[in-house]
């Protein structure tokens, strides 16, 4: 039990320090002329602000700086300008394949994930018995430890005698091909990861969509039915606009999630020839090879991709996202 003592003591001291800081902030603000409740409010949220400044804002700026340096954790970071980026874009043989794999994975799984879970939620939104049961079942994949799931997939996709290749045998015979080496062949890594993600989509997304669908007023559909609207019309003109803010949220969070595959890939372990995801490269360059500068550069490339894509999605929102509050104005 000795190994827990140090951490436990520091874990007890941390909140005491945070409370003392909060009290200090309160008195400082009072002295600056803030009202009691104003000073109280800011002091209450001060733990988050401290965490944000020291573990998000500072690291964010710092990692940008590190991406322009040569740094191995032991020496001082040495400024090298754009060399890390240059190296990545022109010399690192794993970088472009990794960009391609990561982006194609996101491009394929995002629409499948959002549409698939929306359709499933619409099925569950019908007046059927046992919604609770199905909802629970479809949520299961989302709560399991990724480690267990990834190991399970690795066994399932085993090229020689995995269950998947056994189940898909008739299809392979049809196309006259052998059993695919899912995680060893660059052609099959992407499909393999897409299949894994499809299994996982019956999860959180469906529950969120189901809740959103249940919030759509029934009266809207009834009016549309009187006007003779068919299923597709009701879907496009009532369901989609009504739940569009949730769809937007799902697209953005889904995109960010899809670009950050890590744990599963680390356990499934595609061969180097088959390809790596960007986050795996960050880990390898940074923590196994100690090229912290280059790892930061990869992380920033990923960050900028996410920023650009998010902006792009937001640009399209006036065309399709419907906010009731605005419409009422």
């Amino acid at each position: 039990m000795e190994r827990f003592v140090g951490t436990f003591i520091r874990w007890l001291i941390t909140p005491v320090v945070l409370v003392l800081i909060a009290i200090g902030i309160y008195h400082l603000l009072k002295r600056l002329g803030w009202k009691h409740r104003q000073a109280m409010g800011l002091s209450l949220i001060s733990p988050w602000i401290i965490g944000f400044l020291s573990f998000i804002a500072f690291p964010l700026v710092n990692s940008l700086f590190l991406s322009f340096t040569d740094y191995n954790l032991f020496n001082k970071p040495e400024w090298v300008g754009l060399r890390n980026y240059q190296w990545l874009f022109t010399k690192d043989i794993e970088f472009w394949p990794s960009i391609r794999l990561t982006l194609s994975y996101a491009a394929l799984t995002l629409p499948i994930g959002v549409l698939g879970s929306l359709i499933l939620a619409m099925l569950l939104n019908r007046k059927i018995n046992g919604v609770g049961f199905f909802r629970t079942v479809f949520y299961l994949p989302a709560i399991l430890p990724e480690v267990a799931v990834a190991l399970l997939w690795r066994l399932f996709f085993n090229s020689e005698s995995g269950l998947l290749n056994y189940i898909l045998r008739p299809i392979f015979n049809l196309f006259n091909m052998g059993k695919p080496n899912w995680f060893g062949d660059p052609k099959f890594v992407l499909p393999a990861f897409v299949i894994m993600s499809v299994w996982g989509i019956f999860g959180t997304n469906t529950v969120v969509f189901l809740a959103a669908l249940q919030g759509v007023p029934r009266s809207l559909y009834e009016v549309a039915e009187l006007d003779g609207a068919n299923f597709l019309k009701k879907f496009l003109h009532i369901t989609v606009p009504q739940i569009s803010p949730i769809i937007l949220l799902q697209i953005i969070m889904g995109m960010i999630g899809a670009l950050q595959v890590f744990t599963v890939a680390m356990f499934v372990r595609p061969t180097s020839a088959a390809g790596k995801f960007l986050n795996q490269l960050v880990y390898e360059r940074g923590f196994t090879q100690l090229h912290m500068g280059e790892a930061s550069a990869i992380a920033w490339v990923l960050f900028i991709i996410i920023l650009l894509l998010t902006l792009l999605v937001f640009k399209t929102t006036p065309a399709w996202v419907y906010y009731e509050a605005e419409a009422k104005r």
Partner: peptide, 23 residues
């Protein structure tokens, strides 16, 4: 501050990973 808090949800974990490790 609340908007900043919400937007941190969109920050990829790996961007802050290395400096956090350094800290």
């Amino acid at each position: 501050i609340f908007v900043i808090l919400l937007s941190t949800m969109m920050l990829p974990f790996h961007v802050t990973l290395i400096p956090t490790f350094v800290i």
